[in-house]
Measured scan of single mutants.
Amino acid sequence: DHDVVPEDKFQETLHLKEKEGCPQAFHALLSWLLTQDSTAILDFWRVLFKDYNLERYGRLQPILDSFPKDVDLSQPRKGRKPPAVPKALVPPPRLPTKRKASEEARAAAPAALTPRGTASPGSQLKAKPPKKPESSAEQQRLPLGNGIQTMSASVQRAVAMSSGDVPGARGAVEGILIQQVFESGGSKKCIQVGGEFYTPSKFEDSGSGKNKARSSSGPKPLVRAKGAQGAAPGGGEARLGQQGSVPAPLALPSDPQLHQKNEDECAVCRDGGELICCDGCPRAFHLACLSPPLREIPSGTWRCSSCLQATVQEVQPRAEEPRPQEPPVETPLPPGLRSAGEEVRGPPGEPLAGMDTTLVYKHLPAPPSAAPLPGLDSSALHPLLCVGPEGQQNLAPGARCGVCGDGTDVLRCTHCAAAFHWRCHFPAGTSRPGTGLRCRSCSGDVTPAPVEGVLAPSPARLAPGPAKDDTASHEPALHRDDLESLLSEHTFDGILQWAIQSMARPAAPFPS
């Protein structure tokens, strides 16, 4: 592969990997390779389809078979030569091979799209000592099968071997295949498990690692696999990028399955594409389908809103127990993405979901129960707010008499603000006073009005108090039968009158 990737590009890729991570280095090298001529790309395919690569990765054979028959990708048995050289000459001794072996032994695996480039050397060096003999053996194999790289107009793939297949390693990572398949204008990513390549439709969760975000852009890794992070704060999961590491605690105790298979379609829109997988259930989501939507993949363990709600429900009964003089119970939860139609709101002032922060849900004790107040519409209280300059209440639009249902020339009671006709409430011909108009209920007259088809109010509507207090003497005590009587009149003013009279009014101040 030294004929494909020059030394300066190799060093530039290593520097970019240390600065921005393996995914960015892979993407940059792939983009550079696509700008080369067809001879360089053909050399790339020839390096990929060597015999030892085909033996190690069985899924490469179907890719090789898909090439046109007129494309010669065979390799000479006596060494490598550029395709432009007409004579089959043995190339001179390859010093770059020693360079590659020494550099890969030092860096474990470079971040390139060629056999030198995919593992994360920093994480491997940190986690190597417990498994040094086995990992050293794996390093000797890295130059042979560490990076199976493929690129063409139909298929483009980048393979990364790992030393996680050490025997006896619980939940060992089998390997990473960062794979971009450009077929019919689409893009897919796969993962390699035990020599087999699994596409998103049959993606397997190998051991402790999972394909957290099938994305090839942005600074985030394709698999949430930063070796420096180790395990999740809650004892979460091992990262795919942690090559040759000792077994780590796999999943939280509440995880239903340690080796679950995540779905390959969004649980909201039932469509495929780039998904984020939940650590607590097999569901996966688009970032845009979450509520609120996320802009980037959160670091650490992530769970959907259903799993978060289940966790909150487990903690909430203990938080609601009476604990005198104790601060509110704080339950730190990872930043969760909410699927459509589901929402768990945190306290005000918290950062938005999706940031690399930890939301704190506070379970406050329930407030003391209070008697429910009568629910009145805002339009129902409008007549009470229509007060004239002299303190006389004006008529609201649409006000109707509670007896006849007519809204023409209605009066407004100064005591309960109900609309009424003087002739309907006082049919006996009582003279109307000039000021202080009161309806039949507030004036103490319980004589029913002779209106055909309208039920008369119940005599129990009024329960006047002592006459010594004029204001308190007109406080009506309405009961269920009074409400039914008012409802039978089918008037809004009657219902409003009952609601206003049912509310307690402050006692009249004593004259000074």
Rank of each mutant, 00 (worst) to 15 (best):
L395H: 15
L258M: 14
N394M: 15
A508V: 11
P509S: 11
R318H: 06
F285C: 14
P372G: 03
H421G: 02
P253L: 12
R461K: 06
D356R: 04
G336K: 14
T358G: 09
C278V: 08
L376A: 04
Q242S: 07
R270C: 13
P322D: 12
H259W: 10
F510I: 02
P383Y: 04
R440D: 08
G465Y: 13
P351Q: 10
D377F: 11
P322G: 11
S502I: 03
P459A: 06
P327F: 13
S369G: 14
A370W: 15
C266Q: 04
D377Y: 13
L359G: 09
F510S: 04
E330I: 10
G391F: 15
S488G: 05
L395P: 09
P476Q: 11
R412G: 09
S443W: 11
A472V: 10
T435C: 12
G280M: 01
L294W: 15
L275E: 10
H425S: 02
A366Q: 03
L337E: 00
D470Y: 12
P365H: 13
E320A: 11
P298A: 13
P509Y: 13
G272V: 11
A251M: 09
A508E: 08
S291V: 10
D406I: 03
V446G: 08
G391S: 13
T357W: 15
Q257V: 10
D264Y: 07
P433Y: 13
V451L: 04
P249G: 10
G349S: 09
R283Q: 11
R438V: 03
A467E: 09
P374Y: 15
W498V: 01
V387C: 11
A467I: 11
D356L: 03
P389F: 07
G494R: 03
S254G: 13
P509D: 05
L359S: 14
S443K: 05
P476A: 06
G336F: 15
S379Q: 06
A319I: 11
Q392K: 08
Q501L: 03
Q497T: 11
P298M: 14
D470N: 08
I500C: 03
L462R: 08
P457V: 05
L376G: 08
T301R: 11
S378T: 08
P282D: 11
H382C: 05
V410C: 12
P249K: 13
T414G: 10
E326R: 10
P256W: 14
C266D: 04
G429C: 10
L364E: 05
P464I: 12
Q242H: 10
